[in-house]
């Protein structure tokens, strides 16, 4: 038990920050991101032995954090987060400070449908492959490709970025 806890703690210390950042891009609020990360890590703890034995730890952890964010977004205070960002004026990123960049990008992400947002974040921030993203989201590779493509196009439009063939 102690060994299991030590191994898990070692994993959690390293993974928590990255998971929290992914959750933040998904939901736009650090407190919710931290809650989602903790919820996800508790799920990982419960399945620790199987995950250590059978593999798929990173995939499961990311699936858990994405699920936690999506679960949160179904709760009543979802609108508080997105509503709070409505007043931010979108601007071209090259003229922005770090804080501006964060607010603008997060606001733009928040305007994407959840599926597109998850695909963009997992592909372009978490650096998962199409297959891995499909596994995390429980969908097909074709769906990931199309949602990523649409999400990227929408994001570029919102951020006034030039189109690229980056999907």
């Amino acid at each position: 038990m102690r060994r299991r806890d030590d191994e898990f703690a070692e994993f959690a210390v390293v993974a928590a920050r990255r998971m929290c950042r992914t959750a933040y891009l998904m939901c736009g609020d650090w407190h919710r991101a931290e809650d989602a990360t903790q919820d996800a890590l508790v799920k990982v703890y419960r399945r620790w032995r199987h995950l250590r034995k059978d593999g798929g730890l990173a995939s499961y952890a990311n699936r858990a954090v994405v699920s936690a964010v999506l679960d949160q977004s179904r709760r009543k205070w979802r609108s508080e987060i997105l509503g709070g960002l409505e007043s931010v004026v979108l601007a071209a990123p090259d003229a922005m400070t770090v804080v501006d960049t964060r607010a603008v990008v997060v606001q733009a992400l928040s305007r994407l449908p959840p599926g597109q947002r998850a695909c963009v974040v997992l592909r372009y921030y978490a650096d998962f492959s199409i297959e891995q993203t499909a596994e995390i989201l429980g969908t097909g590779a074709g769906s990931v490709k199309s949602q990523t493509s649409r999400g990227l196009a929408e994001l570029r439009s919102l951020l006034a970025l030039p189109e690229r063939n980056s999907a």
């Binding site: 959690a12 891009l25 650090w30 703890y45």
Partner: peptide, 23 residues
Amino acid sequence: IERLLDAAANDDDRSQNISVEAI
């Protein structure tokens, strides 16, 4: 896009409130 997402997720200016012990 990757650079923007990376910058948006940058949390170097804030302390993380995730307790592994609590988890």
